[in-house]
């Protein structure tokens, strides 16, 4: 018997009116696996993360997390659309880091990191602060814990955002183009934190990225999306080294040319 996948997209479709963004997606992600999603803009790659974070509803199919349905719940032996209580229960296993950081501007770095642990998990303030201090240390920002987001650089803000997401102890972390809004010289510090996270924490990671070098070095598997479908997937060496699909070749050629 094979182990239960951490995340399973089962025949998932997403449409906006007449536009089909994702078309019958089937994707399993194993526990602890690091998966990168690459592809041209409009290929539906960010939508995959947003659906898993329940920021988007889905039109067809079911998303499973550790063998339990996320988008649905079981009722009298059949699956019905999930209510909010069920979604919140399953969603607790997932954290996300955004392209535009989305830190709370009226709170310091420390307050950003303890807010949800206290209000959502019901942690004691001292415990939450201890955990947040550890995480801010991990992202190299112990010195900045009392700074407001407006006082931090983009790279620092994104590192706080990573600490904030980790403070909820998710099993799955989603990274949505987390370096795309950063000045080039700040990209490295954020990628370094993600590497560290991958090494030191038992996390399943799913990331949408334009950093091909990082995807190649960091991921166990790379998925190339095109027009709402997985066009090709495989270990980074194969996908980058010897892409089988013509579209993958074109995309990689264009990206590497520009890079």
């Amino acid at each position: 018997m094979t182990e239960q996948p951490m995340v399973r997209f089962e025949n998932v479709s997403k449409r906006y009116g007449a536009l089909t963004v994702l078309d019958g997606l089937n994707l399993d992600i194993a526990r602890g696996e690091k998966v990168s999603i690459i592809g041209p803009s409009g290929s539906g790659k960010t939508t995959v993360l947003r659906m898993l974070m329940t920021l988007e509803t889905i039109n067809d199919g079911v998303i499973w997390v550790e063998g339990e349905p996320l988008t649905h719940m079981k009722k009298n032996g059949t699956l019905v659309p999930a209510d909010l209580a069920h979604i919140r229960k399953i969603r607790a296993k997932i954290g996300m880091v955004f392209q535009s950081f989305n830190l709370f501007p009226h709170m310091t770095a420390m307050q950003n990191c303890i807010e949800a642990p206290i209000t959502v998990l019901g942690m004691k303030r001292t415990d939450a602060e201890a955990r947040a201090a550890e995480l801010l240390d991990m992202v190299g920002l112990s010195q900045k814990k009392d700074h407001y987001p407006s006082q931090l650089s983009g790279g620092q803000q994104q590192r706080v955002a990573i600490a904030r997401a980790c403070a909820m102890r998710p099993k799955i972390m989603l990274f949505d183009e987390v370096t795309s809004a950063l000045d080039p010289e700040l990209v490295g510090e954020v990628l370094e934190v993600i590497r560290k996270l991958g090494r030191e924490h038992d996390l399943t990671m799913l990331m949408v990225t334009h950093q091909m070098g990082f995807a190649k070095e960091f991921s166990d598997r790379v998925c190339f999306f095109h027009a709402g479908k997985i066009c090709e997937q495989g270990p980074p060496n194969e996908l980058f080294g010897a892409p089988k699909n013509e579209r993958t070749r074109q995309f990689l050629h264009a990206v590497l040319e520009a890079g």
Binding site: M53, T54, L55, R88, R91, A92, I94, G95, M96, F98, S100, F101, N102, L103, F104, P105, H106, E115, A116, T119, V120, R164, A165, M168
Partner: peptide, 27 residues
């Protein structure tokens, strides 16, 4: 209030009341 603020709250699994009270209304 920027959409990203709501999305961050969702990603942190806050309830709607928690989002409003702690994050959205103060802004």
């Amino acid at each position: 209030v920027a959409r990203g603020q709501w999305e961050a709250c969702t990603a942190l699994n806050m309830s709607r009341a928690q989002m409003l009270r702690r994050i959205i209304l103060p802004q």
